[in-house]
Design a binder for these strands. Structure first.
Length: 424
RNA sequence: GGAGAGGUGGCUGAGUGGUUGAAAGCGCUCCCCUGCUAAGGGAGUAUAGGAUAAUCUCCUAUCGAGGGUUCGAAUCCCUCUCUCUCCGCCA
């Protein structure tokens, strides 16, 4: 949620900033609503103050046993007025609320301007795409040959964009989970957490998936406000909701493996082959809550943590800064890490690392006690994939494939996997 | 799923209709006292919104959430939710 004080103080810069992401803030509407709210609210509050005063007096009269009927009559009139006024006020408050909670975060100064993913800015690359001395296959072909990727069963059991992995590939994914979590906990000092995969609407509001992006989520029947988590960001970041953290516990860093469920509405026809884009996939997520002054460095650090996994797996990748038109609703700045996919001859997203600054924290009242000012201040939250599992499996298959269709296992993973290749 | 009990400030815990935003204690902050330590004394210590140029200030809201009764609700009524105890079921 935006800092409304900022909007009041300097509406133009807020409008300009939001414009960069292609969001048109209807300032007129807001100012009108706000003016209306102000006058109605201060009016009601004044009446309430008067009523409180009179009620107190009545109390004193009752205690003394003196007559208070005149006061009671007057108070009754005021009460009626307040009630009718509140009826006018509450829809305005609701409008304001909806209006404000649908405004995306402000983007950082150094976010490149642009329209869509074409305008994202490449920051660095790591590793070199391999030169194949044979024609490389795509992961689906490889997986089908190995009998490890079973799209048909996924469709039968559930439907399109669901998959069954068998044998070595299932084990490869599981070993990757352990590998990633171990590095993040042992070397990058994250604490491992296990969290619910079903989340309520408050949690989704907190991280910014609601109210605007309900169509991306799977909603559960029955329980009115339960959804399948689209990312561990939701349950893990909400660990900080309604909390005031001690400065000693900062930075708070959590690593978490969960499945992710996304309806992928609006992605019809995109990545229909194989396991690139699924309704259900596994992910190891990194989440941090830090002091405001630390979030810039924390983003660099967190991105580095995700990159480290790719480096060790010897997968070529690049890091891009998302441009103003491509960045997500809640983020102030985002680095996407893209892994090399030989069959597509390009880099594809495998991790997205974002600094949300105080945007999520304001929505979920995630605060910390600043000992120097002795005040409670909003935390800054960050998260990033470290990494998305199905795409890591895909990338290993394609980048490490051998001429005979077998797949070599990256050196660092062999102990976890228990062998040095997946035979054809 | 059935039956009961309960949700009060950073924590513990009083408070069943009237100057209660809320006693007391703990914790924390500042000050005083003591040669040091131990101890003692005093003051302060929620969040959000608003008025104001701003602050000491003032107003409003908040005692799980939402409604209701009343001049007035932490306190009474209704709905929901969560926690605990017992029973049932169960990986």
């Amino acid at each position: 949620m935006l800092d409304l004080k900022k909007l009041k103080k300097d509406p133009k810069s807020v409008v300009d900033n939001l414009k960069k992401r292609g969001f048109k803030l209807d300032l007129d509407k807001w100012e009108k609503l706000e003016a209306l709210r102000k006058s109605l609210q201060s009016d009601t509050e004044n009446m309430q103050a008067e009523l409180n005063e009179i009620s107190k007096e009545i109390g004193i009269h009752k205690k003394d046993g003196t007559d208070s009927s005149k006061l009671e009559k007057k108070a009754g009139e005021i009460t009626l007025k307040i009630k009718s006024q509140s009826k006018d006020l509450s829809p305005i408050l609701e409008d304001l609320d909806n209006f404000v909670s649908s405004i995306p975060n402000l983007i950082d100064e150094d976010v490149p301007e642009g329209k869509d993913e074409e305008d994202n800015l490449e920051l660095r690359t790591s590793g070199n795409p391999r030169n194949f001395n044979f024609t490389p296959k795509d992961h689906l072909e490889l997986g089908s040959q190995l009998g490890g990727i079973d799209m048909e069963s996924g469709v039968k059991i559930t439907g399109a964009r669901f998959v069954v992995l068998n044998g070595d590939l299932a084990r490869l994914q599981r070993s990757l989970i352990n590998f990633m979590i171990d590095i993040h906990t042992k070397e990058h000092s994250y604490e491992e957490v296990y969290v619910p995969y079903v989340v309520n609407s408050e949690s989704l509001f907190g991280t910014g998936q609601l109210p605007k992006f309900e169509e991306d989520l799977f909603k559960l029947q029955g329980k009115e406000n339960f959804y399948l988590a689209s990312t561990a960001e939701v349950p893990v970041t909400n660990l900080f909701r309604d909390k005031i953290l001690d400065s000693k516990s900062l930075p708070a860093k959590f690593a978490c493996h969960t499945p992710c469920f996304r309806s992928e509405a609006g992605s019809y026809g995109l990545d229909t082959k194989g396991i690139m884009r699924l309704h259900q996939f596994e992910k190891v997520e990194l989440v941090q809550a830090v002091e405001d002054k630390d979030s810039d460095t924390a983003l660099e650090e967190l991105t580095g943590h995700a990159e480290e996994i790719l480096k060790r797996l010897e997968l070529p990748y690049r890091v891009v800064t998302l441009c103003s038109g491509d960045i997500g609703f809640s983020a102030a700045k985002t680095y996407d890490i893209e892994v090399w996919i030989p069959s597509q001859n390009k880099y594809r997203e495998i991790s997205s690392c974002s600094n949300f600054r105080d945007f999520q924290a304001r929505r979920m009242k995630a605060r910390w006690k600043n000992p120097s000012s002795n005040k409670t201040e909003l935390l800054h939250t960050l998260n990033g994939s470290g990494l998305a599992l199905s795409r890591t499996v895909l990338a290993i298959m394609e980048n490490f494939q051998q001429k005979d269709g077998s797949i070599a296992i990256p050196e660092v993973l062999r102990d976890y996997f228990g062998s040095n290749k997946i035979p054809s």
